[in-house]
Design a protein around this nucleic acid. Structure first.
Lengths: 197, 197, 197, 197
DNA sequence: CTATAACCGAGACGGTACGTCCGGTCTTACG
DNA sequence: CGTAAGACCGGACGTACCGTCTCGGTTATAG
């Protein structure tokens, strides 16, 4: 009875061809006619794949976008590790900006976000991914800064990270006036000047 | 008697009864079965109003929520004017928190936000309303702080306001882990400590 | 000058201007975009008249068409009275053909007819008008033919008239392949050859 | 008669269950609350079928009625082939009368007819079906009569058939005073007396 | 020479049905 | 078998007209 559990640890090997076709179709639709045109039906049609197949591997439309998002995002965000907190954060933020400025991930992010409303399960999953996005690299940078003494240690870590990253997402997703590269830099400068020990 | 010059076309106001019935229905649905249950059909049914009537006065579902949002919001957010920047901001932020914690405006905000994606016109309108929300009171507080010398004047005003307000919305709408009242206070403290002259 | 409006026993004198504007609008719509575009709303808009006004004077859309139909029709169908049955009938039928070939009355007739289905009251009214159309002149011709001995008297009068007129309407309204003028003539010839004493 | 070419023809046949449910629902509505109550929505509801399903298989409401009409009609109108023209025609006409006197096909015919106005495509289709109705059996009878010498050969075939069938439809659909069985017989007698060689 | 009533335009209203779109499930047939 | 193709139910969409119903504003008699 327990031997089954061993094999269920990795229950989902999405066939590579299907995976690729679906994500490509979603990407094309996103960059083509924008988020509202991204429907499961359209994706299935464009990918030359049956709706059934999509539902088999992805629980919802947002899951596809999430997948797409990850695929694109993870390979472009790395820890600069320049040895300088301000520099690291600026590089990181501008990389994120560059990433999100492209139609595909920008649309995908906004769409995912919208989709997540009203569906608690989806909400959690989306949040987790977003957090990961924020954390993987940001955490490392903040970690270094804290241990090297470049950041105040009397401030909650979460609060620090929010101060750094929140304005970015706020401007991008809520105010719909994304920060410019210059604003990113100034933003980091101001935040760090306030968080210096 | 001179002819009436009808060059000025002032659009008719929404009849009070209709306006009230529709917003009430929307509010009930929001607080009842949540955002996904808020459809124009459901609103029309619950309000005892024809769908056509709704479409006559509101261009979209989001417009209704926007309307609801304004109606509820504007009467609850006032300038504390305690004479103390930190105090003012804390009161303001906690008032906003209190307002957004209620199911109705919270759901409405998230829903509006989601709805705004993909429709540029709606996006602009939603942004404008959100900005107003942020600005009307926040601006006054920041104004006073700047003129009284409680805030650095070498930092872009927009950046200041974003630092104050972005984490709030980010936590509420994107991270879906709204700030607590304590976090609001600490947040203001940290931001102000960094923005003090 | 005062006795002009003395007789108010008939409560409905449709104001001439309104009457004209409405019928003209209906006619324009009929000949323009065809029967389906003839809606009360469209008529009202085109006539520059309030819907209320139309409903005040006409009980239904079909009533308007009926009115239009009468206005056009009655002035164009007269008894030829050439002294020859066949000639009379041919002239009559071809006059009717000419009348119905114009887009306006043709569309109106078909529309009226369609409209009459399902509404018994309307059905009766439409039938009455159609019958009148058929009878006023046709009756006179058949009367003369019967009394002059040009038609068999052992056949039911209704049957005779149906044989003459039914194929015309059938071809026009049901088969939608209206008789040509030549077919009208041949038709009369054949019918009369069978109905000669 | 018409053979289904399953190997060459792409369009799938309507699934039998769907077909049956929809036609039955339409028939019930027709015989129940009359033609005006026959809406696509009502049919869908009564049949327990989605509107989309109906639109998938039938282009319009009239198409459904046409279908219903055919289904009912074709199985009840057969060539009597008594060897006698007059007899054949009388049987045929009275069968048609019987068929059309039932609420369902009567209402359906009138409704279809009304519906066909204004939509040229539908008009053609309706006409084709009506013609078929008229022709399949009527043609055979007239054929026999012509070859056996029971009918004049100097008269256009179309004219002959119109003389036979037009009064029937005219009385039924236009005058709304359907022929009685006796009138059918007398009508045939008169027509044949005029068309005898 | 008003007043009063009929009539008008404008158009909002509750409704019904339309035809379309998409979501998510279930079925069929092929490879 | 898995998978493509796609039919299916359901629900919401936004639109078109329906026929009813206030609204003011204008004539145009009737007092």
């Amino acid at each position: 009875m327990s031997e089954q559990l061993r094999f269920e640890q990795k229950p989902r090997p999405i066939p590579a061809a299907t995976h690729r076709k679906v994500l490509e179709a979603a990407a094309e639709l996103l960059s083509g006619k924008g988020y509202p045109s991204v429907t499961i039906e359209a994706i299935a049609a464009k990918a030359g794949v049956a709706k059934t197949t999509i539902y088999r591997w992805w629980p919802s439309k947002a899951a596809i976008l999430l997948d797409l998002f990850d695929t694109i995002g993870t390979e472009q965000l790395t820890d600069p590790a320049t040895g300088n907190v301000a520099g690291d954060l600026k590089v990181y933020l501008k990389a994120l900006l560059g990433l999100m400025s492209g139609t595909i991930p920008g649309e995908a992010a906004a769409g995912m976000f919208a989709e997540a409303q009203g569906d608690p399960a989806m909400k959690d999953e989306v949040c987790a991914h977003f957090s990961e996005f924020r954390q993987i690299v940001l955490n490392q940078i903040v970690d270094r800064a804290l241990s090297s003494g470049d950041l105040r240690r009397d401030v909650d870590r979460r609060l620090i990270e929010d101060l750094i990253i929140a304005p970015f997402w706020y401007r991008l997703l809520i105010a719909h006036e994304p920060m410019s590269a210059e604003e990113c830099e100034r933003h980091i400068d101001v935040v760090l000047s306030g968080l210096a020990p």
